[in-house]
Computed example of a mutant assay.
Amino acid sequence: MSAEIYLIRHTTPAVEKGTCYGQADLDVTESFFDEAARIKEYLPAHIQTVYASPLQRCSKLAQYLFPSHNILFHDELKEINCGDWELLKWDDIPQEVVMPWMNDFVNVRIPGGESYLDLLARTTTLFEKITAQQEHAAIVSHGGVLRSILSHLTDTPLIDSFNVFKLQYGCVVKLTLQENGFVHEILHNVQSTSEQHKPSISKQ
């Protein structure tokens, strides 16, 4: 059987819509068990190794889905570092501060944090180490991390990744290694709540 890697995004986080968050250690909502049970339906029994972000919205899911595995936690799988903006309301960030990043979020670093390129670099470095093991694996992580991996595998420009890979909370994406590289298949991707990861239209 060809190596398979399952990319799993965390369930709905306990945070008010319109809040900027990345590496803030948010808890999960009361819908966690329902969401996690649906995710579990799409995961095979033959997964050998589990990697996860140590942030609790991922660690709790990884431990629920894989109770008999020794989960390997890696900081490289954390969401983008939002630096000075962590847990601020998007619309409360001054326009002159947020707009340079809005205009070029791929290259411009969030003050005190990361750019999308920074996230891509650390994420894909670890991903290449994971694939070198040639095992059936699962990666429980965040939307930005999973989009980075998929962009890397498909040569999708990062600036297009949010439109190309519309990954909802609790999504499951199966990667299968073939002769010419990995192919991906979205197994589960149900929109449960709307998200806001930038200022509102009126702010812009």
Rank of each mutant, 00 (worst) to 15 (best):
residue 1 M to V: 12
residue 2 S to D: 14
residue 6 Y to H: 04
residue 7 L to P: 09
residue 7 L to R: 04
residue 8 I to L: 05
residue 15 V to T: 10
residue 17 K to M: 13
residue 19 T to V: 12
residue 21 Y to G: 09
residue 21 Y to S: 08
residue 25 D to R: 11
residue 25 D to V: 07
residue 27 D to W: 02
residue 29 T to Y: 10
residue 30 E to D: 15
residue 33 F to P: 00
residue 33 F to T: 12
residue 36 A to W: 10
residue 37 A to C: 01
residue 39 I to E: 10
residue 39 I to R: 04
residue 41 E to K: 15
residue 44 P to K: 06
residue 45 A to L: 13
residue 46 H to V: 11
residue 50 V to D: 09
residue 51 Y to D: 10
residue 53 S to T: 14
residue 53 S to W: 13
residue 53 S to R: 13
residue 54 P to C: 12
residue 61 L to F: 10
residue 71 I to T: 11
residue 71 I to K: 12
residue 71 I to L: 10
residue 72 L to W: 06
residue 72 L to Q: 15
residue 74 H to E: 15
residue 74 H to L: 00
residue 75 D to S: 13
residue 75 D to V: 05
residue 76 E to K: 14
residue 76 E to C: 11
residue 79 E to L: 07
residue 83 G to N: 08
residue 84 D to N: 13
residue 85 W to L: 05
residue 87 L to E: 07
residue 92 D to Y: 05
residue 92 D to S: 14
residue 93 I to P: 03
residue 94 P to L: 04
residue 94 P to D: 05
residue 98 V to M: 05
residue 99 M to E: 11
residue 99 M to S: 11
residue 101 W to A: 02
residue 102 M to D: 01
residue 103 N to M: 12
residue 104 D to E: 07
residue 104 D to S: 05
residue 105 F to V: 04
residue 107 N to A: 08
residue 112 G to R: 10
residue 113 G to N: 08
residue 115 S to T: 09
residue 115 S to L: 06
residue 119 L to H: 00
residue 119 L to S: 06
residue 123 T to Y: 01
residue 126 L to K: 01
residue 131 T to Q: 06
residue 132 A to R: 07
residue 134 Q to T: 03
residue 137 A to C: 11
residue 138 A to M: 02
residue 142 H to N: 05
residue 143 G to E: 05
residue 144 G to S: 05
residue 144 G to K: 02
residue 145 V to L: 07
residue 146 L to C: 02
residue 154 T to R: 07
residue 155 D to N: 14
residue 155 D to C: 08
residue 156 T to S: 03
residue 158 L to Y: 09
residue 158 L to C: 09
residue 162 F to Y: 14
residue 165 F to R: 10
residue 165 F to T: 11
residue 166 K to V: 13
residue 170 G to L: 09
residue 175 L to D: 04
residue 176 T to C: 07
residue 180 N to R: 13
residue 181 G to F: 07
residue 182 F to V: 01
residue 182 F to M: 02
residue 186 I to F: 00
residue 187 L to P: 06
residue 187 L to R: 01
residue 188 H to I: 00
residue 191 Q to F: 00
residue 193 T to I: 15
residue 193 T to D: 12
residue 194 S to N: 14
residue 195 E to Y: 06
residue 197 H to P: 00
residue 198 K to A: 14
residue 199 P to M: 08
residue 202 S to H: 14
residue 204 Q to L: 15
